[in-house]
Nucleic acid binder design. Structure first.
Length: 190
DNA sequence: GTACAGATTGAG
DNA sequence: TCAATCTGTACT
């Protein structure tokens, strides 16, 4: 029943993709090993008008150019010199919209709290710069699946995004989505 | 060539 | 609540 998410799924506004990514499964293959996790927390970043986005005002730099790819690619970058952030691009080519994956509920047996934050889940998945620009609809080492799990609207909560206080009024936008009560969601902050 | 920010984390 | 920590980015 597992259905790989198609280009069509990703080629929509980031806000929509961010909400619908909840309850989808991320598959990461490392050699013989297969890591699987359900997405339980995301954040949306909307192109040039979003001050919190790296593509604010349509800036293009070597770092964020993958953010401009059509939906379904990975945009990964380093923060604080030590943590990777995994984003999935959304919308059409040329539109810098993306969705940050903030937390996973792992199906594998793992140490507690090893995927409840964007930096930690990337460490768990062994993601690094080599995944920048990876096409999730074609890659053999990482992709997303729909396993027929429906997350009801009433189980989805929205809050403001994390760690972007510099973004002024954009920091207030309720563009962080997570599954209510899920223990794998990153620790709430105010 | 160099200053500097940073979509976090974990310890206190 | 707060500071460690350090690479890639952006600019000169």
């Amino acid at each position: 029943m597992a259905k790989k998410l198609s280009r069509k799924f990703y080629s929509r506004p980031a806000l929509k993709v961010a909400k619908e990514l909840l309850g989808k499964y991320l598959i990461r293959k490392i050699g013989r090993q297969k890591l699987v996790g359900k997405i339980v927390e995301t954040e949306a970043y909307i192109g040039p008008k979003d001050r919190a986005s790296h593509a604010f005002l349509g800036k293009v730099t070597p770092r964020n150019k993958t953010e401009y790819l059509e939906g379904g690619h990975i945009y990964i970058y380093l923060v604080y010199g030590m943590y990777w952030q995994m984003n999935i691009t959304a919308s059409k080519a040329g539109k810098p919209e993306c969705v940050l994956i903030r937390a996973l509920e792992p199906l594998n047996k793992v140490e507690p709290h090893s995927t409840d934050g964007p930096g930690k889940l990337c460490r768990w998945l062994k993601l690094n710069k080599s995944f920048d620009g990876e096409d999730l609809t074609k890659s053999k080492r990482i992709w997303l699946e729909d396993r027929g799990e429906e997350i009801k609207r009433s189980r989805i909560a929205a809050s403001k995004r994390i760690g972007i206080d510099y973004a002024l009024e954009w920091a207030e936008k309720p563009w962080r989505f997570y599954i209510k009560g899920n223990p794998f969601v990153s620790r709430p902050r105010t």
